[in-house]
């Protein structure tokens, strides 16, 4: 092989590695999906997963959404005033939060909070032989550990996104009416009338996809963790990194698909 071909070879290897990883993750996700019905045997694990992914994420998601909505309203107002378009604040905040910032912020918060905790928990179980113990106790780790969490990710993250959207809009509303002189009733009417059903659908679909990505990556990294504390750390770090990047990549793809771009 000549030196000139070396970059091409490295690029090819990296591309093949990426494809292999995506393939493995897709199979892992499908394996988890087909194990969702049998998880009804483990109501306790299901409720723990819903609590861990959904309920306990509410405070961080809510606060992030409120602050993001408030900051967005201020930005739109400041930017709009340069071209005498301050009045567009309700419309831009509505579309910006519902289509884009709500789901992305929730997706990233879930990637940071839930992916890290699930990956660390399952990786610790792996290195302390608890996953092996499950197998020897005739329990499939995919059904017991992964499927409840994937189901929780698919169901609760869209709900979190919906709440994040509402709270983000509320943040914008608060700043606009209390600080920027907008009338409350007309702000709400303008925002509501401007949003189309496809915006809300896109927001919720993004939530489900981001939730699936964040939780699948966490479980996959946890179950494939290396040995010892270092293995747990590596699994957690790689899961969070991959989840954050994939959430942002999926966001671009979903937006393009929904709007036929």
């Amino acid at each position: 092989m000549t030196r000139a071909l070396l970059p091409l070879t490295l690029l090819g290897r990296a591309a093949l590695g990426l494809m292999r990883r995506i393939g493995a993750l897709t199979l892992f996700f499908l394996n988890a999906l087909i194990r969702i019905p049998p998880t009804v045997r483990y109501p306790r694990e299901l409720s723990r997963a819903f609590l861990q992914v959904g309920w306990l994420s509410l405070p961080v998601v809510g606060l992030t959404a409120v602050f993001t909505g408030a900051a967005l309203a201020l930005q739109i107002y400041a930017g709009g005033s340069r071209i005498s378009a301050e009045a567009v604040v309700p419309q831009i905040v509505a579309i910006g939060i519902v289509r884009e910032l709500g789901p992305v912020m929730v997706g990233l918060m879930i990637a940071a909070r839930v992916t890290s905790s699930i990956a660390a928990e399952i990786a610790t179980m792996k290195v302390s032989e608890q996953v092996d113990a499950l197998v020897t106790l005739s329990t499939d780790p995919m059904t017991y550990l992964t499927a409840p969490r994937v189901l929780a990710g698919l169901v609760t993250v869209p709900v979190l996104v919906a709440l994040g959207d509402i709270l983000g809009l509320f943040g914008g509303f608060l700043v606009a009416t209390q600080g920027l002189g907008f009338n409350g009733a007309s702000y709400v009417n303008t925002s509501w009338n401007f949003l189309a059903p496809i915006d809300i659908t896109l927001s919720l679909v993004k939530g489900a996809v981001f939730g699936g990505i964040a939780v699948t990556l966490a479980c996959h990294a946890g179950l494939n963790a290396g040995r010892g504390a270092q293995g747990v750390g590596m699994a957690t770090k790689s899961a969070v990194q991959a989840a954050a990047i994939l959430v942002l990549a999926a966001n671009v793809i979903l937006t393009a698909v929904f709007f036929g771009l």
Binding site: S128, E129, Q130, D132, A133, V135, T136, L137, S138
Partner: peptide, 13 residues
């Protein structure tokens, strides 16, 4: 495995 009991090194509770 239905008929097997295992004690792991670190107990694995």
């Amino acid at each position: 495995l239905e008929d097997t009991g295992v004690l792991f090194q670190g107990s694995a509770l």
